[in-house]
């Protein structure tokens, strides 16, 4: 057969290359989207500045300054907004517009798709940490970083929220996902012990640390206070396993 333009030469790219391509694409799309950017960077910055200013008058009952307590909380909020809300909304609309269906035959392996999504989440989180961290430092934050605890908190927190986000996106319609992901975000922002420490919730504080939001908030605050919150990290790991398993079981691709 003559070698024409379209002479077949099929084959999938190596998985590593697919993951890289998918990571780059998803991160680019996330950062290009105005609402996502608002959620990822602008709202956390407003919360940080507003809370630090507002709490000057309050006593958080801590030996730390308010910026030392609040900055790790806002970083936890940033992880939650990206790994849960942004991921759920983006994936919900990918399902709606047939992107997942299309890429499935493209041929993007499901593992590579997930790898790409995780890569994009981590990339965006690094950017969030740089921006929010810089703002915190400018406000007088003096962290005492425990690197292993920080890494575990970010990874396990991302995994826990991403599993729940995928569960939401894979079972509801896109509009319902949009509404639910934003609502859950607002509820946890207000009362999930993310930004404010669990201790600030009085008797409810203990319950809060069993939520993924509270566990991530506490783990992050400890990590920037030179210690490791093992119980909270274990809680996040349990949510990650449970959420991931549920998403794997019930996620519908279209």
């Amino acid at each position: 057969m003559s070698a024409g333009t379209f002479t077949p030469a099929p084959g999938a790219a190596p998985v590593a290359r697919q993951v890289l391509a998918q990571t780059a694409m998803e991160a680019r799309l996330l950062l290009r989207n105005g609402e996502q950017l608002l959620l990822a960077v602008v709202i956390p910055l407003i919360v940080l500045v507003g809370a630090v200013r507002g709490s000057a008058a309050l006593d958080l009952g801590s030996k730390h300054t308010s910026v030392d307590v609040l900055t790790p909380g806002v970083l936890a909020l940033a992880v939650m907004s990206t790994a849960f809300t942004s991921l759920a909304i983006a994936t919900g609309f990918e399902r709606r517009y047939g992107v997942l269906k299309r890429l499935g035959t493209a041929p993007l392996a499901r593992g590579a798709l997930l790898g790409g999504k995780i890569g994009a989440l981590l990339l965006v989180e690094v950017l969030q940490f740089l921006v929010i961290g810089a703002a915190g430092l400018a406000l007088g934050w003096s962290p005492d970083v425990q690197p292993v605890a920080l890494l575990l908190a970010v990874l396990l927190g991302t995994a826990a929220f991403a599993g729940l986000g995928m569960l939401l996106a894979g079972t509801l319609r896109a509009e319902a996902t949009l509404a639910a992901a934003n609502l859950v975000y607002l509820l946890l922002l207000a009362g999930g012990a993310v930004v404010l420490p669990a201790a600030a919730y009085g008797g409810l504080g203990d319950v809060m640390t069993w939520l993924p939001s509270g566990a991530l908030g506490e783990a992050m605050r400890d990590a920037f206070d030179g210690s490791v919150a093992w119980r909270e990290l274990a809680t996040l790991a349990a949510w990650a396993v449970g959420g991931g398993a549920a998403a794997g079981r019930w996620f519908r691709w279209e």
Binding site: R32, N33, Y97, G98, R102
Partner: peptide, 16 residues
């Protein structure tokens, strides 16, 4: 999958 090409009736791309 790598050996076939699929054109869907609609959609199949990110909106942005």
């Amino acid at each position: 999958m790598p050996r076939i090409g699929v054109m869907l009736q609609a959609g199949g791309a990110w909106s942005g």
